[in-house]
Design a protein around this nucleic acid. Sequence first.
DNA 1: CATGAATGAGGGTTCATTCAT
DNA 2: GATGAATGAACCCTCATTCAT
Lengths: 213, 213, 213, 213
Amino acid sequence: MALTTEQRVRRAAVKLFAAKGFHGTGIRDLAQAAKISPASLYHYMGTKEDLLAAIMRECLDRLLLAARQTLDTVDDPAGQLSALVTLHVMAHAAQPAETRVVDNEVGALSRGRRRVVVGLRDEYEAIWAGAIEKGVSAGVFDVPEPAVTRLALLEMCTGVARWYSPRGALSLDGLADRYAQLALRMLGGPPTGGETAAERAREVATRVWRIRP
Amino acid sequence: MALTTEQRVRRAAVKLFAAKGFHGTGIRDLAQAAKISPASLYHYMGTKEDLLAAIMRECLDRLLLAARQTLDTVDDPAGQLSALVTLHVMAHAAQPAETRVVDNEVGALSRGRRRVVVGLRDEYEAIWAGAIEKGVSAGVFDVPEPAVTRLALLEMCTGVARWYSPRGALSLDGLADRYAQLALRMLGGPPTGGETAAERAREVATRVWRIRP
Amino acid sequence: MALTTEQRVRRAAVKLFAAKGFHGTGIRDLAQAAKISPASLYHYMGTKEDLLAAIMRECLDRLLLAARQTLDTVDDPAGQLSALVTLHVMAHAAQPAETRVVDNEVGALSRGRRRVVVGLRDEYEAIWAGAIEKGVSAGVFDVPEPAVTRLALLEMCTGVARWYSPRGALSLDGLADRYAQLALRMLGGPPTGGETAAERAREVATRVWRIRP
Amino acid sequence: MALTTEQRVRRAAVKLFAAKGFHGTGIRDLAQAAKISPASLYHYMGTKEDLLAAIMRECLDRLLLAARQTLDTVDDPAGQLSALVTLHVMAHAAQPAETRVVDNEVGALSRGRRRVVVGLRDEYEAIWAGAIEKGVSAGVFDVPEPAVTRLALLEMCTGVARWYSPRGALSLDGLADRYAQLALRMLGGPPTGGETAAERAREVATRVWRIRP
DNA sequence: CATGAATGAGGGTTCATTCAT
DNA sequence: GATGAATGAACCCTCATTCAT
C-alpha cells in the first residue's frame, strides 16, 4: 500500500532529524525527502518544531504504553526488569531513528515543550526505578546505588539505537535476550528467571512497534 | 590565572556545542560567550568546523593516550577491563561537554574529517575488544557475544556524560568503582579483582584530565 | 435577512482593507472573515486586486452619482457647496471603511486601474471646483486661492472617515450641518444659506448609502 | 556632503513606506533604494518594524517639540491657533513622506508600539484642544462643537501632506498663511490677528525641519 | 458549490565568512 | 590584535493562486 503524504513527511523528518539533527535539517531537505515542495510541507505540519514535538510525543507515548501494559501482568522484580529491558531494547533496535531523535534533540525544543517531553521521560524512568526498588526490597537484587544502576542500565539499553543493525548476526529477539541477561547480571539477581515476562514483553513490543516476526 | 582568548573560545565552543549542538550554535553565540566580536573569532580559529574538529581530535587523542598508557602496565584481563572502565567513566564524568560533542556531532563533520574521527574511535574500541577477547580466551569472562557486550559496556559508560553531576552523592572515584563492578558482573568475571589496575587508571586519569582529587 | 456569500466577502474585504490595508490583509484573513475557505473565495472574486478595484469603483460611482443627482436640482453656489459638503461628510461618516480604502489604497492598484480610479476622483473634484468657481464669479465667496481652498475643504471632509463614530454625541445630520457651516465660513460666504440644498442632499444620501434615519 | 548609509536607509524607508505602505514595501525594495544588500540593512536597523517605529517616533517628537517651543512664547488664542496651524502645515508640506507614514501606518505597529505612538499623538492633539478651549472661554472663538472643529482643523491641515507640491504656485509660507486664515475663519475668530505668532512659528519650523527659506 | 492539496515566488531575517581600517 | 561593515546564500515560513475532486 502506498504511503500517504503525511506519512512520507513524518518518515522523512524522523530519518533526517536522526541523521543530521534538527538544526542540521533544513525545510528544503525535508521537502525533498518527502517528495513535495517546501510550501506543501506546511499542509502536513505546523512549524518544523511542531513536527519534532509530535515525533517525540508519539515515541514516548508508545514506550510508556508498552511498559505499562506489560508490567500490568508481571509481578516479580526479575520479570519486571527483564520485561522493561526487552521492551526498551526492542523499541530502540526497531526504531533507532525515532529514539535517537527523542534522545538527542530535546534541547531543540522550546521551553514549554521541553518540559512536556522531559515529564514523559521522567514518568518512564520512574517505572524502572519502581521495579528496581521492588527487587532491592525483596532481596532479589544486590544493588548498592539503585539510581546509578538504573541510569547505567538505561544508557546501556538506549545505546542499542546507536549501533544495532538488523543485518547483523543477532535477531531482535536474540538481542533483547542478551540484554536481559546482562541486566540481571548487573543487578546481582538470579542468573535466570523472567523468561515468561520477557516473552510477554516481546508480544507487546511486536504489537506496539509493528515488528514483523 | 586569567584564561587566554584562545582558551575562552575553545571553552565557549565546547559548552555551546554540547548544549545546543553544532548546527544550533551560531558564530555570534560563540563570540558572545567568548567575549569577543564575531570577526575576532577568526583570529583564533579557522572555520567553525575546524574548531569542532580540533575539539574532537583532542578529546579522542587524550582518551587513546590514557588507555594506552594504562594498559601498558596491566596484563590481566579483569584488570584491563577495570582500568578501561575507570578511565572512560572518569573522562566522561569530568568532561561531559567535550565527550558529548564527540559522541553527538560526528555527523556535522565533512566526510574527510569524519573518517579521521571515526578512525580514532575505532582504534579506541579495538583496545576494548582486545581486552575482552583476552579475558574470554583466558576463560576469565563468560561472554556469549563479545561484540554486543563491548558495545553495551561502552554505551553504558559513555552515558555517564549525559547524567553525572559532581554535586550528587557520588564522587568521581566512587562512580568509577561502581561502574567497574557493574562491568565485571556483565562480563561474568570474578566478583573482585582489578583493584590495582583501577588504581593505576585513576592516577592516569587524574593527570590526563587534570582532575583535582 | 441573511447575507449572500458574495456580500460577506465584500464586507470582509472592506473591513479588513480599511483596518489593515490591502497589503496587510491576506487571502486567508479574508476567507476567515467571510467564513469560507480560501479556495472558495475565488468563486466570488477574481484576484485580490479585482476585489479592491470593485470596492473602489462602486464607492466612487455612488459618490459621483449622489453629487450629480443633487446638484441637478440646486443652482446657487452656497447651496451647491452645502450640498456637496453634506453628501461627502455623510458618505464618509456612514461608510468610513469603504472611503478609507478609496483614500488609502490607490497606490495598491496596478497602473491601468489606478488611472481609472484617479480619473473618477478627478471628475468628482471637478464638480467641487465648478461650484467654488461659480461662487467666486458670482461674488458670493471670498477665496484668494480656489484650488487650495478646495483641497483644504475636501481633506477636512474626508477626514471624517478617520474619526467619526455614530456612538458619539453628534448625529450624522448634525455632523453634516456643522461641516456645512464650517465650509461656508472658510469660503467667506454668507453665514447662512443653502439649507434647502442641504436638505435635498440629506435625502439623496439617505437613499444612496441606505442610511437609516 | 555625502549621506551616511544609515541616513540612506532611513530616507529610503520614509520614501517607500509613504509611497507603497509598510506592508507594501519589501526588505529587498528597501535595500535596493538604500543601495546596500538586504543583509546589510540589518546593521542599520533592528527589524523592519523597528525602523517604522523610529521614523514615527522622531516625526512626532519634532512636532511636539515645535508646538511646545512655539506656544511657550505666545499667549493669545488667535495667535496660538495661527502658530499651531502654521507649524502643522509647514511640517506636513515640508515632510510629506514622514507625516504620511505617521498618519497611515499606525495600524502596522504591534500593540505596545502603537500605544506609544497614539499616546504622543494624543499629547499633541491636547495642545490644540487647549488652545481652542482657551479661545472659546475668552469669547474670541465662536465654536459650537470644539472637539469636532478641532478634528476638522487637524484633518484639513494634515491633508496638506497628500497634495502640496513645492513646485506649485504657493510657497510654504504662503500656504501656511492661507491655512491660518482658513482656520481663523472656521473658528469664527477675528479676520486678522496672530501674525506675530505665525512669524514665530515659521522661525521654529525653519529650524526644526531644516527648511531652507 | 466547495475545498484540500499543491506550488513558485517571495516574505523578513540570520547565517558563516571576509576584509579594510 | 580587534572590529564595524559588508554580503551571498540560506534560513523558516507565508503569499496569492490554481485545480482536481
